[in-house]
Simulated scan of single mutants.
Amino acid sequence: MAHSPYPIPEATLSWEQEIKKSRFIAHLAHTPDPGAAKAFIASIRESDQNAAHHCWAFIAGAPGDSQALGFSDDGEPSGTAGKPILAQLQGSGLGEITAVVSRYFGGIKLGTGGLVRAYGGTVAHALSRLDTRERLIMERLSLRAEYSDMALLEGLLTQSGTHWERVDYGVLVSGVLLVDARSLDSLCQQIRDRTQGRVVARPVTD
């Protein structure tokens, strides 16, 4: 699993251009999983029913996750729409993103090369205008501690930007921490060292 953060869309964006009387409208959105991607595609189809085609592609995960890809030419000649859209998304370095390009046919055929340039180019222009934010990769740590160690422990958590996902105050303090994956190993080591082994944090495996 990748530990490095990656950029994702901050908000939904639409951008339009006209090429030889055909209108190409790109819609970009943050879609963290394939279900969200398909729901966004369906919403564009529903809201823009007069378009001749709704071609799309998505990366519904981290940028390099080949298991989270999808694309469709939606009736355009094979290879002229979905793949060029996907190529732009992959080239952007973004993750968790879906692009739908709606086309209103203007009566002039563009040819296969023209379609590739039109669909890919429309998405490229839209991507250049997209605001993004960083998606941190978080891991879970299970932890159990005596109350006497909590002041030291809370100091370590604050220093590393770690916070509780859930915590129970019983005979011992126990719970699950959300940790930036990049600092997981060092935090476990610090907790062990600073408490002289009294507190042990273990990664939660699903």
Rank of each mutant, 00 (worst) to 15 (best):
22 S>C: 11
91 G>V: 06
86 L>R: 03
58 F>Q: 01
57 A>Y: 02
39 A>E: 15
60 A>V: 03
62 A>W: 03
59 I>P: 03
56 W>K: 00
104 Y>N: 10
31 T>W: 07
93 G>K: 05
75 G>M: 01
73 D>F: 04
52 A>T: 10
106 G>D: 08
80 T>I: 02
15 W>I: 04
73 D>R: 02
79 G>V: 05
109 K>M: 15
22 S>L: 12
109 K>P: 13
30 H>A: 14
53 H>C: 04
102 S>K: 07
48 D>E: 14
36 A>C: 13
105 F>P: 11
104 Y>D: 13
51 A>Y: 03
32 P>Q: 10
24 F>M: 11
87 A>E: 09
70 G>K: 00
25 I>G: 02
108 I>F: 08
94 L>A: 08
22 S>Q: 12
44 I>P: 09
95 G>A: 10
35 G>E: 13
71 F>V: 00
88 Q>K: 09
41 I>V: 15
85 I>S: 05
110 L>I: 15
48 D>T: 13
44 I>L: 12
11 A>P: 07
73 D>G: 00
89 L>P: 07
97 I>V: 14
79 G>M: 07
24 F>W: 09
66 S>L: 06
24 F>N: 09
20 K>L: 15
24 F>Q: 10
15 W>H: 15
42 A>P: 09
25 I>W: 10
24 F>V: 10
60 A>Q: 02
88 Q>R: 13
91 G>D: 04
105 F>D: 06
92 S>R: 02
89 L>G: 06
34 P>H: 03
101 V>I: 12
51 A>T: 01
103 R>K: 09
107 G>Y: 05
48 D>N: 12
28 L>D: 01
45 R>A: 01
101 V>W: 04
77 P>C: 05
16 E>C: 15
8 I>W: 06
51 A>E: 00
63 P>D: 00
62 A>M: 05
100 V>I: 14
48 D>H: 13
70 G>W: 01
48 D>K: 11
8 I>A: 09
33 D>C: 07
50 N>P: 01
41 I>Q: 12
27 H>A: 06
20 K>G: 11
17 Q>D: 15
10 E>L: 14
70 G>I: 00
76 E>K: 02
51 A>K: 00
64 G>Y: 02
52 A>N: 14
57 A>P: 02
27 H>P: 12
95 G>N: 11
43 S>K: 03
42 A>G: 12
35 G>P: 06
28 L>S: 05
87 A>F: 04
57 A>C: 03
28 L>R: 03
50 N>A: 14
77 P>Q: 04
92 S>K: 05
6 Y>G: 15
